[in-house]
Design a protein around this nucleic acid. Structure first.
Length: 558
RNA sequence: UGGGGCGUCGUCAAGCGGUAAGACACAGGUCUUUGGAACCUGCAUUCGGAGGUUCGAAUCCUCCCGCCCCAGCCA
């Protein structure tokens, strides 16, 4: 890594810095405010990194606040899962765990204040009427017939809304702002709706629930949040956010918006993710092909790699779609330094060393991680019959193919030089079923005293010692970079996004705990899936190693 | 066509009037018991377009073009 990288100050850091310098705020408080109605995904990870990152950078604090203002969609188990996800990502909110629902009483008081000031009114129009009278993008809205109701009547009606006297949806409380505003959000937005349904935290205490625009700024204000960071679609809501705070004359946080993350070949909208899960297009919220935190975690992504990714994509207001390759790079970068190496064969081809004594077993030594000498060495059993990768042999090798072929000598990693003498085929299909080779006893460990070089090195496992294992190979979930480009994202699913194959692992790996990560040499990074057992190990391929040969070969074909 | 926002390399993204950072990707090379990693080299005479201001413009002004968001009693 070069040290020429600029300090990198994004526009939010700049704004916070200025606010502090100007004395507008004395302490930086941010918040991550998920609604507990779904699972966290990598887009949330970006927001989490920004929210907690800004707080930390300026010596402040970040609140974890559940924005639980809509009991029809929210559930306790989402609250648990979200906390688990934030913690896993590596962030700590300490004792700053808050709920919007804890502020409902205060919000109610403030609503009464606005009614008294003539700045809010109860509207008896139906939802359809409200929509029709809101006007359009080019035409102003029409005032509600109830807009000029007297203060006492509004007060009475509002109290009775909360008392449960009216059916759901029959009335709303609206802010009295400007029905002709070019910003639709300012055309007398709804503050409360009647929703006599039990809330997962407040039970049946409330018959009315606050809307986002009314509630969010108040929540921020109550918590003395200095900088309320959110995504770009809330820009149009900022005038309203500010309006409520001004009318109430309470502590006024600053809302700053940034572009949300989009990733190629996947979807990050709650709605689409739900469709994938409930339609059984994937195995669940933690399907390793999903960009959910649970999915990435099961796939083998490390928290550090995701944080690093969020760091590298930067923060701006420009609509951006990041290539998947960057996320993969961040994972490889992390795992290369930390993952223990081991050998596994995904697509086995039998190899017999004809001059190696039958029944003999040697213990050979190998690095656990060549990038990290402190990781030590490990022992691997070697014997006469081995499994190697089918891809490592070509009967008729193309140009630049350095691996094994008839008459050619290659190295078995950490073991011996071998030469292929005979190719055994299935007489029926012509398929290569076995390679018969000779090893050079002088090359033990994979070195040759004189310096005779060999161009290829293959990984292998001893047939007598290896354990069977399942490998789950994942590919992009969608074939198109922008899956919903045609509005038909479900029809753009990649039918080859999951391939399960059976191969061999070093025996010592059986029994490795779920979540354990390894590099299978020359193949990629894998992690133990939770549905493994010592007798039936299953490994998820987190990401492959870069494959130069595959690139050369595909360039040759072009 | 109302309002808001955004347009700098294939993808992100610095740049804040003084003569286009960096990362990923890609291409070539060195090295190598992972065709991995590491290392080296190359990769925007140009910043959506056109005018203008200026000794000097990606940065300032004007007009134009394109993309995104907003008409939930969702957040």
């Amino acid at each position: 890594m070069k040290m020429t990288e600029a300090p990198g100050v994004n526009f939010i850091q700049e704004a916070v810095r200025e606010d502090l310098a100007a004395g507008r705020y004395t302490k930086v408080i941010t918040r991550f405010p998920p609604e507990p109605n779904g699972y966290l995904h990598i887009g949330h990870a970006k927001a989490i990194c920004i929210d907690f990152g800004i707080a930390e950078e300026f010596g402040g604090l970040c609140n974890l606040r559940f924005d639980d203002t809509n009991p029809t969609k929210e559930e306790q188990h989402y609250i648990d899962a979200i906390q688990d996800g934030v913690r896993w990502l590596g962030f700590d909110w300490g004792d700053r765990l808050y709920y919007a629902s804890d502020y409902f009483a205060q919000m109610y008081e403030w609503a009464i204040q606005l009614i008294r000031d003539g700045k809010a009114y109860v509207d008896d129009q139906t939802a359809d009427e409200i929509r029709e009278n809101r006007g359009t993008l080019t035409e102003p809205g029409k005032p509600s017939p109830y807009r000029d109701r007297g203060v006492e009547e509004n007060l009475d009606l509002f109290e009775r809304m909360q008392a449960g006297e009216f059916p759901n949806g029959s009335r709303v409380l609206r802010a009295r702002i400007d029905m002709a505003s070019p910003n639709l959000n300012m055309r007398d937005p709804v503050m409360y709706r009647i929703l006599a349904v039990p809330h997962h935290r407040t039970g049946d205490r409330w018959k009315i629930y606050p809307m986002y625009d009314w509630a969010h700024g108040l929540e921020d204000s109550i918590e003395r949040v200095s900088h309320s960071l959110c995504s770009i679609e809330f820009q149009d809501h900022r005038p309203l956010y500010d309006w409520f705070l001004e009318q109430l004359g309470i502590f006024h946080p600053r809302q700053i918006e940034f572009a949300r993350l989009e990733l190629e070949h996947t979807v990050l909208s709650k709605r689409k993710l739900i469709q994938l899960v409930s339609g059984n297009y994937v195995g669940g919220w933690d399907d390793p092909r999903l960009p959910t935190l649970a999915g990435l975690r099961r796939r083998g992504y490390t928290p550090a790699s995701i944080r690093n990714f969020c760091d590298r994509i930067g923060v701006s207001k420009a609509h951006s779609v990041v290539e998947f390759a960057l996320l993969e790079h961040c994972l490889r970068d992390d795992l290369n330094k930390t993952a223990p190496r081991t050998m596994a064969v995904m697509r086995p081809l039998k190899l017999v060393l004809t001059n190696y004594p039958e029944g003999k077993v040697e213990e050979l030594e190998a690095d656990v991680n060549p990038e990290d000498p402190s990781a030590g060495r490990r022992k691997i059993p070697f014997s006469r019959e081995l499994w190697i990768e089918q891809d490592d042999f070509r009967e008729d090798p193309p140009k630049k193919f350095y691996r094994l072929s008839p008459g050619r000598e290659v190295r078995l990693k950490y073991a011996y030089y071998i030469t292929c003498n005979e190719v055994v085929k299935d007489p029926g299909t012509g398929e290569v079923t076995e390679l018969r080779c000779m090893y050079d006893p002088e090359t033990r460990g994979g070195w040759v005293p004189g310096g005779r070089k060999v161009k290829g090195t293959s990984h292998w496992v001893s047939a007598a010692h290896a354990a069977r294992a399942e490998f789950r190979l994942y590919d992009r979930l969608f074939t198109r970079p922008n899956p919903d480009e045609d509005g038909q994202f479900l029809s753009n699913l990649n039918p080859q996004s999951l391939e399960k194959i059976s191969g061999f692992i070093e025996a010592g790996l059986a029994g490795a705990p779920a979540g354990a990560r390894y590099q299978f040499e020359r193949l990629g990074y894998f992690c133990v899936d939770p549905d493994s057992s010592p007798e039936a190990m299953a490994f998820n391929r987190s990401v492959s190693l870069k494959d130069t040969w595959a690139r050369i070969e595909s360039n040759l074909k072009l």
